[in-house]
């Protein structure tokens, strides 16, 4: 049904998006917590930096990543030296680009969920003998779960669809960084690629609808767990 090339692009896209979401989720929860609850001087600055990928052109973000994580960039050089990890032109780099682009969406959803958690419940848990971390683990986190789930799914969809940052940062290497969006772009550029591009467009549509349906089902299940449905 799907050609080897199509399968490869699909598998790569899902892999990149999954790694991007899985790795950035804990960070997003921490940042959301800092933004919602933290009282420290650099809070506004942090808020701004987190939101940059939402307001800057993706190409600019890709270029920033190139400067930071390129082989001669300050972080890229360090990663290569210490872990032998090269990001540029690799799927790990694609995952990083996707994660950065999806990060603000994830943080926003999680922060909203955190802000809607009743502080009174946390106070009640404290009086029942739970330490601050225990309260977070046993009360706050479960109550935030719907927001975390929807944040992760929105981020997954955004990661799946990123184009600008990915192509700028890691290029368009077939089998390594050529995700669905990049493959569609390449096919649309070639003279007789229209039909093949259309097949991938349909595939993207199917994935999008499936992800939406899955998120709906998951969200409803979590809401039921919390007794709000």
């Amino acid at each position: 049904m799907l050609s080897a090339l199509e399968l490869e692009a699909l598998r790569l896209s899902l892999q990149v998006a999954a790694v991007a979401v899985a790795c950035s989720l804990p960070v997003a929860i921490a940042v959301a917590w800092l933004l919602a609850r933290g009282r420290f001087p650099g809070r506004v600055l942090l808020d701004t930096v987190v939101h940059l990928p939402l307001v800057l052109p993706p190409v600019v973000i890709g270029y920033f990543l190139l400067l930071l994580f390129g082989t001669r960039g300050p972080l890229g050089g360090w990663l290569a030296e210490t872990f032998g990890l090269r990001l540029i032109f690799t799927r790990w780099g694609a995952a990083l680009a996707a994660a950065v682009m999806a990060f603000p969406l994830m943080v926003r959803a999680i922060r909203l969920a955190l802000e809607s958690v009743d502080r009174g419940l946390e106070a009640a848990a404290r009086t029942l003998g739970a330490s601050r971390f225990d309260v977070f683990r046993s009360i706050t986190l479960p109550l935030m779960l719907p927001g975390i789930v929807s944040g992760a799914i929105v981020a997954f969809a955004a990661a799946l669809g990123d184009f600008g940052a990915t192509i700028t940062f890691v290029g368009n290497v077939q089998g390594e960084t050529q995700t669905l969006s990049l493959a569609i772009y390449s096919l649309a550029q070639s003279p007789d690629g229209d039909a093949a591009a259309l097949r991938l467009v349909v595939l993207s549509l199917v994935i999008a609808v499936a992800a939406l349906a899955a998120s709906e089902a998951l969200a409803r299940r979590v809401q039921r767990q919390l007794g709000r449905a």
Binding site: D118, G120, L121, A123, A124, A125, I139, P142, L143, Q225, L226, G227, R228
Partner: peptide, 10 residues
């Protein structure tokens, strides 16, 4: 015991 029972909904 608070005025609103503050039971944990989950």
């Amino acid at each position: 015991v608070f005025q609103d029972a503050r039971l944990f909904p989950h």
